[in-house]
Nucleic acid binder design. Sequence first.
DNA 1: CCCGCAGTCGACAACAGTTCTCACATGCTC
DNA 2: GAGCATGTGAGAACTGTTGTCGACTGCGGG
Lengths: 134, 134
Amino acid sequence: MIRNTRQRTAVNAVFEELEGFHSAQEVHARMRAAGDSIGLSTVYRAVQALVDDGELDSIRTDAGEAIYRRCSTRHHHHLVCRACGRTEEVEGPAVERWADRVAGEHGFVDVTHTLEIFGTCAACHRAGATTETP
Amino acid sequence: MIRNTRQRTAVNAVFEELEGFHSAQEVHARMRAAGDSIGLSTVYRAVQALVDDGELDSIRTDAGEAIYRRCSTRHHHHLVCRACGRTEEVEGPAVERWADRVAGEHGFVDVTHTLEIFGTCAACHRAGATTETP
DNA sequence: CCCGCAGTCGACAACAGTTCTCACATGCTC
DNA sequence: GAGCATGTGAGAACTGTTGTCGACTGCGGG
Ligand SMILES: [Mn+2]
Ligand SMILES: [Mn+2]
Ligand SMILES: [Zn+2]
Ligand SMILES: [Zn+2]
């Protein structure tokens, strides 16, 4: 039986206030800084539970760190700025169909996929362009 | 100046004989078992160098482990069996165009993407189906 | 050839992220 | 409220990976 605890509620609340992706460690530090008493293990358990419930979406950084974000329920993917971390949710029914089709053609069943797009957002590109100019 | 060493040659050779994705640790263990003397750090450095040279492709497992595979040079994606790890390389020009276009529409430049498809391959599905039947 | 040395090796320590342990605390049901 | 399954958290343990540093070696120049 799943129980309502102060800690779980608080972790949930953090992701309500926060935009974009955040790691468990960051959430933990943030809560501690705000005066919330909570253990790191508990944060890990809480985000895992939220992922299992489909309330958080998780991706892995190149460095191997898991980061989490409250997501809309529709299936979508992420467009992530390499420089500032800003993320946009994008959808592409054509991609979904393509993935399912190509997997089916190879005899695969029970198909899922992961798709992330990375780039430099307009703002960061502008900033980079001005600082890079000699 | 990059030097030719017995160890780098050996790691390269392992990926020549091996199909599919393999972790640095697995490669290290495999070499040790075969009587090859090599340090784990060296394996990590070697695979990293091969990735930098574009000779190996690397993806990250859900568990956060980096796995490597000798890849064809064309841009492609992977269809991976959850059960046995068998992988197929797949291509989809439409997906490439879609990713670039949607990123461009959001003002992103210097765009890359990652796309992996997961499923159960036909063989594993058959095996699973028979064992699951009561 | 062999010298010299930058590049490389590898045992080991250090790190980072995550999970486990277990004594203790606390929601929930009755 | 009492009982108890469930959750908590400090710390240890674990995992994959990278850093350290003295020893070693490929290789271009002498
Ligand atoms: Mn999709
Ligand atoms: Mn692609
Ligand atoms: Zn940006
Ligand atoms: Zn399979």
